[in-house]
């Protein structure tokens, strides 16, 4: 079983990202489970969401403390601490930032992938909503979800014109990270 923890801020779509990654994973042929860190956080407050991937039904219900993967929706969250907590050796952290991976202080053994998801989202979607972009990056970086499955999940969630844009954003990120990985 592999585990993903998403760090974001209220309003950035972290919960939606977890759900759509779980849907895409399921479409990619694995059992998945997505859930938010249930809270009462309002817009702007740090939030977390979780996804598990497994070859069999997922039974575990606790939150994720030792993730294989981390997505950080906003690099400003790093300074609050905790985004890399418990990360497994060989884990992958995908961080939305303009900086190169070498500028990120991550624990040893964690592979850091950076992507300027905000600029990409602004360019493709016209709004700085980065969750779909980061889903594309996650697909490329981890191989947990197939790009066609992610596209299907996005098209089921968003209405036609919005779906096109989000698919484009995800695909562009997929290619950027795929090229880098």
């Amino acid at each position: 079983m592999r585990e993903l923890r998403i760090h974001g801020r209220g309003g950035q779509g972290s919960v939606t990202a977890a759900e759509l990654i779980a849907v895409a994973a399921f479409e990619s042929g694995v059992y998945s489970q997505a859930f938010p860190a249930f809270g009462v956080e309002r817009r702007g407050a740090p939030v977390q969401a979780f996804v598990r991937f497994s070859d069999g039904r997922v039974r575990l219900r606790s939150q994720i403390y030792e993730p294989d993967y981390v997505i950080v929706q906003d690099s400003s969250l790093i300074r609050n601490g905790g985004v890399f907590d418990g990360m497994k050796e060989g884990g992958i952290a995908i961080i939305n930032t303009e900086k190169p991976p070498s500028d990120i202080e991550a624990p040893a053994g964690v592979k850091v992938i950076t992507i300027d998801a905000t600029s990409l989202a602004l360019e493709v979607l016209g709004v700085p909503i980065t969750n779909t972009t980061l889903m594309g990056a996650f697909a490329a970086a981890t191989g947990e979800i197939r790009m066609d499955a992610l596209e299907k999940a996005l098209r089921e969630r968003f209405r036609a014109d919005l779906a096109d844009k989000n698919v484009t954003a995800a695909r562009r990120a997929f290619e950027m990270v795929g090229g880098a990985a």
Binding site: Y31, A34, F35, P36, F38, V58
Partner: peptide, 12 residues
């Protein structure tokens, strides 16, 4: 069924 733990969880 458990609030949030099941009600807000996506799974097959």
């Amino acid at each position: 069924f458990d609030g949030f733990i099941l009600s807000h969880t996506y799974e097959p």
